[in-house]
Nucleic acid binder design. Sequence first.
RNA 1: GGCGCUAUCGUCAAGUGGUUAAGACACCGCCCUUUCACGGCGGGUUCGUGGGUUCAAAUCCCGCUAGCGUCACCA
Length: 450
Amino acid sequence: MKVRTRFAPSPTGYMHIGNLRTALYAYLFAKHEGGDFILRIEDTDRARYVADAVEFIEKTLAAAKIIPDEGPHHGGNFGPYVQSERMDIYKKYAEQLVEMGHAYREETENGVAIRQKMPKTGETTFFDVLHGNITIANAELEDQVLLKSDGMPTYNFANVIDDHLMEITHIIRGAEFITSTPKHVLLYEFFGWELPTFIHLAPVMGKAEDGTVSKLSKRHGATSFNDLVEMGYLPEVITNYVALLGWNPKTNQEIFSMQELIDAFSLDGLSKSPAVFDYNKLDWMSGEYFKAMTDEEFAAVADKFFGELNANLAQKKIYLASLLKSRVTKLSEIPAMIKFLMEMPPFDAELFVNKRNKVTVANSIEIISPAIKILEGVDDWTFENLSEKISAYIESSGMKTGTIMWPLRIALSGQKITPGGVVEILYLLGRETALERLTRAVGALQNLSD
RNA sequence: GGCGCUAUCGUCAAGUGGUUAAGACACCGCCCUUUCACGGCGGGUUCGUGGGUUCAAAUCCCGCUAGCGUCACCA
């Protein structure tokens, strides 16, 4: 039988990382098995409906490269794929249950609801791939509502009807559904339907500043796929990282393309215990992706984080990208990293003083001044020429490289840390700006010592 | 509270009766170095707890504890 899995979100306009992971695993499993992945919208709660949420979900899945074979806008022979468009189907089955004596009508002030009649004794057992057999006493089960008084089905009813009708073979969903699964199983039994295979995933947790761990939520920072994209993590990094949060390939490989994930995915690599979302590891992985990119590729994804570049920098984008790509863990760090190129930070004499490199305010002047003379002689402002002149200067000065470079970097950038060394910054700034900054620094230092 | 699920370094985790208990991130130290980064080397009382079973337990069983989930006309 062909494997068919589904992702069945409610249209809330928000794609939580945990939901994304559930969708990913359902997709990976289906694709690994050569099966189908179905997107179904569970919009039976009219109070929670969010406009355009379906499009939002579809866009998010597309960005994550999780591509449904069937869905509201993906075609398929088992539609409609939106539950609010299937009301007559649920009504039919609910009434069938009433006739069979497994459900009953209930009059309320808002109308008529239909409730499932639970056995009072005995227990219900179902098999879960991760957890094995799970048994719950029927006495724990309430007579749950199947059809609400507004005619809409509840989740517990609709998902059973749809999973059966859509021929879903493997139900991959969050562990929060474990205790309601016996109700579903009873429904399958009432109808005489074959049971699908259940796989209940452990939740994704977040760690708060006080060290406590709880289900990933807003207080842990970004919690949705889209938040992370906005922070400058590549969609493929997010899926790669999330795939490994609760699943392991049994090898030491950590960087996976979507195709590699599909090839490697297996249910027995899934963890039963909750996993804590770790930004450190995400950052590391993100950096690995950037380092693996060409300068051009990095420049393309980084482009919108460059902001308004002046004419000089705009033509050096690729070069700038080459310096940045090995130092960035998420693209949103870029503006702060390159700001000094556009605008010199306020003068701070303290920065010139560096014990390790034996640099003081006084010798800074003596180091920078000759450099200005030398650089003024460079007409063809290329990286090679600049590198050659600076090297020659260091050699003739008899001083250590660090001693020369330190004050130059501070004078050029106003900061201790820069993307790239002095020569790189010299080149990026361009002749005019570089000389102007050096000259101005010497002036400021002299004022200080006078 | 009842019921259910879970429990290996700070985090992700391998491990399925006999291992020096992998690997990765993070952290710390050292080296390299033109800062940062990169790279290299090294480091850390890790199997929640108490009982069993066994020649032998991180691995199997039971209790306890803790965390999480669930008890809706939400999904």
